[in-house]
Design a protein around this nucleic acid. Structure first.
Lengths: 140, 140
DNA sequence: TTATCAATTGATAATGAATCTAAATTACGA
DNA sequence: TCGTAATTTAGATTCATTATCAATTGATAA
């Protein structure tokens, strides 16, 4: 489970431990992303932060997300459309609603197929995407 | 298994049966894509065809691929980067080489987790992506 | 055949995501 | 406090994709 960084100190430590300078923009981005369950896009994060951080640039958001990814503090999701970012780096899967676009975390299925040898291909990680309708959109 | 359309007649029939006009550009695109195992991008298909079809426009390639997708004759793959198109619409998965980018079809794993009910989410289809290294890149 | 007409095409413009650039700023160890 | 490499920023740039719309064409009916 990923948690929100309560204090700047805590967030700053995370960045420094990863060998990244703890700039105010990075702190803001890290704190905004961590604990966010909605899998925001870079643009969404930017808009959310720009209000309280007028000088922030989109480029910085992209840069920071790339840095955080390198450092295993988040993970990009390619589900079609702009990349989304998941602060939960523990292995898990995703359910995507085909109507409203909601992306929900799914516990890694126990039935998760063993990364079998695919005749020559050495599997590093398996990714599962469940596509369908969320409760709301299924209208249950 | 997907096969190559030997004759234009055959390809034309496929299009008409799907309620699509059998234009020369569509025939060319359908025939180029069918039986292609490389999961080409729209751009790649365009370049391949443009040689023998100078008047072809990229827009037409995109339009046709969208039409073929609607009609279940191919399937777009979002794996990061430009969309790729798979003429194999039978359920199967993909192995993506993280070094060279090769995308290989993988028989739908028998171990494929049952689209379980995800507390409210109704799963329509499950997608698996195996990321790792292909035989060549693993340097075996 | 030929006429008709909606579907389709193609050139280009427009949009959107993401990266690059280069100059100005800044975090942080010495 | 300083020096320096890392970082930020605005804007330009690239690349993928969609939109626009006049001109063309496939399919059908006459």
């Amino acid at each position: 489970m990923n948690r929100i960084f309560q204090s700047e100190q805590e967030a700053a430590a995370v960045l420094r431990d990863a060998g990244l300078k703890a700039t105010p923009q990075r702190l803001a981005i890290l704190r905004a992303l961590s604990g966010d369950v909605t899998h925001p896009t870079a643009q969404e994060l930017y808009e959310r932060l720009a209000t309280h951080f007028p000088a922030l640039s989109v480029a910085t958001v992209y840069n920071t997300l790339a840095a955080l990814t390198r450092v295993e503090r988040c993970r990009p999701l390619d589900l079609g459309g702009p990349a989304r970012f998941d602060p939960n780096v523990a292995p898990h899967d995703h359910a995507v609603c085909e109507r409203c676009g909601e992306i929900r975390d799914v516990k890694a299925a126990e039935t998760r197929p063993k990364p079998r040898a695919l005749t020559g291909f050495s599997v590093r990680r398996v990714e599962h995407i469940y596509r369908g309708l969320c409760a709301k959109c299924a209208g249950t």
